[in-house]
Each structure stands twice: as structure tokens, then as C-alpha cells.
Nucleic acid binder design. Structure first.
Lengths: 258, 258
DNA sequence: GAAAGAGAGAGAGCAGTGCTCTCTGATGTG
DNA sequence: CACATCAGAGAGCACTGCTCTCTCTCTTTC
């Protein structure tokens, strides 16, 4: 009574589509279809209720199926969240990449545009932003599936910094420091340097400084979204611009504000 | 059977303490005592399990009382969380104030020390940090009780910036901008300017720039605590220093790193 | 083509949650 | 001393994640 009202007619619907049409058997295609319906329903619930309230039973109800049946497709609630996390990482990564690619300004000004685009995405989908940059869920340990999409924003940042250095407009006001050991070897390996000792100091320094840009972006959005600018900032949008541009100046990107 | 095993002997204990001893009646004193036990138990559970897993029933069990009895003292689970949030704001505010007061270096270097102290606090009490700077709980709307303690960290930052300006060592590398409208009138009022139009532009600019320091602090800690430096940064502590110092440089605080 | 197997879904059930209700018995006050 | 107040107990409701068993259909194998 609590679970379900409509009879399961899904199987019949599938049968009308014809048997064994593609490379995947009908069963596999049905499975994939249910999976995508599942994700769509979960995404909808996430955006309307937030991750803490995302309930597997509610998703099952939305799909008209028993809660136990969901476990045929997803091992646990946290696994479902992980799928949404990956989606969110990919979404924000694409937003950043598109903003960077679509800009014809210099790298400094482009960074402001990227930051603004990410902020707009976060304000549009606050629950997705929270999912990836807010408090991690419970004992959640990010599986390695999330690493790839998570790194896309970093790549945009490093790309802009390297472009700025190439153009000769990177002029750090920040402190001098010895870059050795501050980056993880894996991160430098991703950038093509298999041996950390062969990374030129100026490139290593740029890599470390990218942390300031990333931090100012995620920090500025978090701080705004989580309510810490309440009664502090006036015009949030223009406050954000100053925050990002000021931090960028320390890295050596001179942004002009209107 | 699920709730409780030991009989309630609390009342008898109180009786032995003598009747109506202080200004507060015995009942009130008992009430206050239970309340503080409640908070202590909740704090313990928060630090060991995290806010998402903070269960009123579990706290009640720890105290050996029925879960329903807890509602005599606290209207809801979220209200209990709010009390812990206020405690956390006060704790981090005190950490920042003490670090600032205990430093005899110039304002720039003092900022690094404050930032390091806050980071250390956050790493020691990650759940408290998450509680205030992570994703807000559900439909949680911060009641005004939290505003006062929340603003203590901001006050430290503004104090340092004003001191640096007074000492003539504040030399912003960040972008030029018109400060009007970027701050909330209430925030300027807190700083003693009841009429926003009388705030000198340079003071207003300092206020806005404080956002970069706040953001870099909260952002850098969040990013580290929530796992976004995994396989990116090597030595987290030294990475943090660069992040904070680089952002500070944009604001005009020249920090020397060792 | 028939028999055996695999797998999707249903439903009951367990242990846990927040919160409300009513009842009891001790406490402080007129 | 009688009465009102109020902390606490315990049952109960609606919800959660997850597991177990059962059924029925589709797929594969002989």
C-alpha cells in the first residue's frame, strides 16, 4: 500500500518495440532505459529537494516501482549520489571549458568570464554545486570515477595561466616561494611531466598558483551560496567580481573591472 | 525496550542538593544542567559522527533518557544544530582573535598566522568547520542568533587591513574598482558608518577587499577538507600557505614565505 | 521446440529516524 | 496542605536505507 499502485506494464511496452533489434538484447536495452529514467528522476529530486533529502524510495515512487527494485540497478543510495556527482562535475567542467573557448579576450579577462560562468551555473543548480563542492556526504569516499571529470576545471585554469605566461602578461604580485613538493607528483604527471624533477620551476610555480584561482572561485561561490555574505556584501555579482579579480592579481592576472 | 533501561534517578539527585539554594529555583538549575549535558552529548556525537548523522534519539540514549524528553529542552533537531553552530562560530572567532592578538609581526604576516590557526582548528574539528562553512542543513535559515558570532572572523580581517593601511604597508596589486554598492549598508554601519555616503572610498575599498581574504581562507580550507586537493597538492600545509599569501598579495598584504 | 537458467520487479520485514501524543509522578507555589 | 506545573516515559505515526524471499518473464542452451 505504501509502495505502489499502478501495475507493471513496462515489460509489455518493451515487447512492442520488437525483439532483439540492436546489438544489445532487449533486456539490456530495457535495463539501460530504466537506468536513465532512474537518473533523471534522481536528478529532478536532487534539484528540488537537495542531496540530503534525496531518498531512494521517493525516486522509486516517482518511477512507479517498488523501492526494492531500484536496488537491481543501483547498489545503494550513495552510489546513486555518486552518479549525480559525476554528472555535476562534468556539467561544471563543460561550462568552464565553453566559457574559456568562447572568449576572445586575453587570458586574464577570460578567467573572469570563466568564473562568472561557473558562478551562474552554481546559482542555477545550487544543489549540484553543493553536491560536489559542499560538505561530502557521510562517510563518502570519492571513488576514482570522479577524479577525471573533477579535474576539468583545473585544466582550464592551468591552460589560462600557461597561455598568459606565453603571452608575457603573467606578472605575479604574490610571494616568492620554492615550488618543490607543493604539488602532487600525479598532478604534474597529468601535465605531461612524468619525472617531477624535470619540471621547470616557473611551470611548477604556475601549477601551485593555480590553487589560488581555484580556491577563490570555489570559495567565492560557496561563501555566497551558503549565506556568508548576508548583510556583508551589497551587490553580490559585483562583489564576486572584485573577489575573483583581486585574487587573480596575486597570481599575476590583471583583470579590468567595469 | 528500545528506549531506556535505567530508572530516572536524576530527580532524587537534585533533591539531595538542597531546595531553592540560589537565585534560580532548583527546577531552573536542573533545567540548565540538563541543557548543558545535552549540548555536551550532542557536541561529542557531532565530532565523532558528523552533522548528518547527529540523531536526537542517539543523544537521548547517551544521556539515558527517552527521546521524547529531549523535546522538553530543544524544539527540534535543527534547533539543536543551531546551538552547535553558534558554538562553532564562537570557537573559530576566538581562534582568529587570539592568533591576531598574540602576533607581534606586521599585519601581513599576522594574517598568515591567523589563517594557519583557523586551518589548524578546522583540521582538528572538521565537523564543526563543515557545520558553519559547509553545505547548510536542509531548509535551514540562519536565525539572527548566529550573525553576531559569525562576524567575528570578518572583524579580525578588517582590523588587520585597517592596521596595514595605517602602517602604510597596504599596497593593493588588485584591480581598481568603484566600491559603491558592493558592500551591504549594515556591514558599513557595523564599522561605525551609519550613513554609507560618508564612508571614504579607500575604507570602502578595504571593506570590499576583505572579501578576498575571507574567501581565500574559507575556500582554501574547504577545498582541502572536502578532498579537492587529492592528487593535486603535495604538501597540503605549504600549498595552503601559498594560496593564502598569493590571494593576500592581491589585496596588498605582502607575506614572506619561508 | 522444450527445459533450464538468469534476472527484474514486488512485497514483507528489520532497524533506524524525527516528532507528537498521552500519561505519570515529582516539584514548587498558593 | 492542596493544587498546578512540568520533566520525563512510552507508545505510535510516517518516513528512511537495505535485505530477504517469492514470482513471473525473458533468454539461453540442449
Amino acid at each position: 500500500m505504501t509502495e505502489q499502485t499502478t501495475p507493471p506494464q513496462r515489460a509489455d511496452d518493451r515487447a512492442t518495440a520488437g525483439p532483439t533489434r540492436s546489438l544489445l538484447g532487449a533486456r539490456d536495452r530495457a535495463r539501460a532505459e530504466v537506468m536513465s529514467e532512474l537518473l533523471a528522476a534522481a536528478r529532478a529530486r536532487l534539484e528540488s529537494e537537495g542531496s540530503a533529502a534525496l531518498s531512494l524510495r521517493a525516486v522509486a515512487r516517482d518511477l512507479g516501482m517498488a523501492s526494492s527494485a531500484v536496488y537491481r540497478h543501483v547498489p545503494s543510495r550513495d552510489a546513486l549520489l555518486t552518479l549525480l556527482i559525476i554528472e555535476a562535475y562534468d556539467a561544471v567542467g563543460e561550462v568552464a571549458e565553453k566559457a574559456a573557448a568562447g572568449s576572445d579576450a586575453d587570458p586574464a579577462q577570460t578567467w573572469l568570464e570563466v568564473a562568472r560562468a561557473v558562478r551562474r551555473w552554481a546559482l542555477d543548480q545550487p544543489h549540484s554545486f553543493e553536491l560536489i563542492y559542499g560538505t561530502p556526504v557521510r562517510g563518502y569516499r570519492a571513488p576514482d570515477d570522479t577524479v577525471r571529470p573533477a579535474v576539468r576545471v583545473w585544466e582550464v585554469i592551468i591552460g589560462l595561466l600557461l597561455a598568459a605566461a606565453r603571452d608575457g602578461i603573467l606578472d605575479p604580485a604574490g610571494p616568492d616561494f620554492d615550488p618543490t613538493g607543493r604539488m602532487a607528483p600525479e598532478a604534474l604527471a597529468t601535465a605531461g611531466f612524468t619525472d617531477p624533477t624535470t619540471v621547470p620551476d616557473d611551470v611548477a610555480r604556475i601549477a601551485v598558483r593555480s590553487g589560488t584561482l581555484f580556491t577563490s572561485l570555489v570559495g567565492a561561490i560557496s561563501v555566497e551560496l551558503f549565506g556568508h555574505l548576508h548583510r556583508v556584501a551589497g551587490d553580490y555579482e559585483r562583489f564576486f567580481d572584485v573577489t575573483v579579480a583581486t585574487a587573480a592579481a596575486g597570481v599575476g592576472l590583471r583583470i579590468t573591472l567595469d
